[in-house]
């Protein structure tokens, strides 16, 4: 009875090890960095410009035009940041967290929740 159980848990460990190994493989790491740079950067830019536009104490149309005019600049800075920091974990957490905070603030201010 014990032998199959043992081999099953052994297999399980093997699978986990395989996943960990493949996740830390070079290609996957590069892929994850591009994901956070492109999609995370886009989300960060969207949330931050929307919040900025909402908070600016000027006419609505001016706030919109100003926010969109600098949006590409923000996106580019986030993108470069995602590739300049060594730890991928730091990149993911910092971008997702700040995007979440911006989006949350906006939701509170706009009474979406």
């Amino acid at each position: 009875m014990q032998a199959p159980l043992h081999s099953a848990s052994f297999d399980k460990i093997n699978v986990i090890a395989l996943i960990v190994k493949s996740v830390s493989s070079y290609r996957v790491l590069i892929f994850l960095r591009f994901v956070i740079a492109i999609i995370g950067g886009y989300a960060f830019t969207s949330a931050s410009t929307a919040l900025l536009c909402f908070l600016m104490p000027i006419a609505k149309q001016d706030a919109v035009l100003f926010s969109v005019s600098i949006s590409i600049l923000i996106y580019a800075v986030v993108f470069i940041y995602a590739f300049s920091v060594k730890s991928l974990k730091t990149v993911w957490i910092s971008i997702l967290l700040s995007t979440g905070i911006f989006a949350g603030l906006l939701a509170l201010l706009k009474d979406w929740v």
């Binding site: 830019t45 969207s46 949330a47 410009t49 929307a50 919040l51 900025l52 536009c53 909402f54 609505k60 706030a63 919109v64 926010s67 969109v68 005019s69 949006s71 590409i72 906006l106 706009k110």
Partner: peptide, 12 residues
């Protein structure tokens, strides 16, 4: 830009 980032206008 309004195709890329419509969000500021949509919020305002």
């Amino acid at each position: 830009i309004f195709m890329l980032f419509p969000y500021p206008a949509q919020t305002a």
